[in-house]
Amino acid sequence: MAGKGGATPATYAPSPSTKKDKKKPSTFADADWVRPDGRSFHQCRPAFLKTAAVNSASGSAYAEFGSTKVIVSVFGPRESKKAMMYSDVGRLNCNVSYTTFATPIRGQGADSKEVSSVLHKALEGAIILESFPKTTVDVFALVLESGGSDLPVIISCASLALADAGIMLYDLITSVSVSCLGKNLVIDPLPEEESNQDGSFMIACMPSRDEITQLTLTGEWSTPKINEATQLCLDACKKLGKIMRSCLKEAVSGGSQEEEL
């Protein structure tokens, strides 16, 4: 990009975040900076969850964590494609896509193939696949707005949709991510924080069984820091699990609800 001296730029690309990014890293390294949305480091964004968002699906859910908005539909269990071999356990098929308007620059969403495979790995451990042999359950996720921590929101929302579809689960899956910025651990990071992070840490777990189904970590971490991040994530996952549970109960008696983690 030609950054200098252009009185009339040849093309116009709205990029509100790039300007700020250059200054930010220095402030993130400080011991006490304020997060862009004014949260404390260990505070999650308010979550809004709703089941049965799509009529034609067997089950569906809509989740809104701050500005991250995700909708997940679950179809099936239905007959596996003819080409598939016989299988005495059910199959899980996950597909995540980003709308073209999900990101500030059009069509710049994360690689959907990567996200889909992580979603698959996070969910498969919780689904009782033996309960629907020879058939396939399709999980389709659509990110309407990418506002940071997309993947954990997709995973949590997908498990809510699976529960709504009446698929047998060992437990709900909840997922939370943490960013490491300088010395600080920041839960439920925003895009600005994610793009400057020194390391990321994500956990998907079954809160009532206290089991981790998926875990990814990048960057440079010492073992005490990993311990701290795990504790932080597990606590948040437990709280999120309670909210999701009450959302499902609420759906039976009618209405939806908003709660703060």
Binding site: D210, L215, T218, T230
Partner: peptide
């Protein structure tokens, strides 16, 4: 220093086992 962790296989693991 730990530079990356990935988990595969569906079965859940207890947090203490992972650590």
């Amino acid at each position: 220093q730990i530079c990356g962790v990935t988990k595969r296989g569906g079965a859940g693991l207890d947090p203490s086992v992972i650590l």
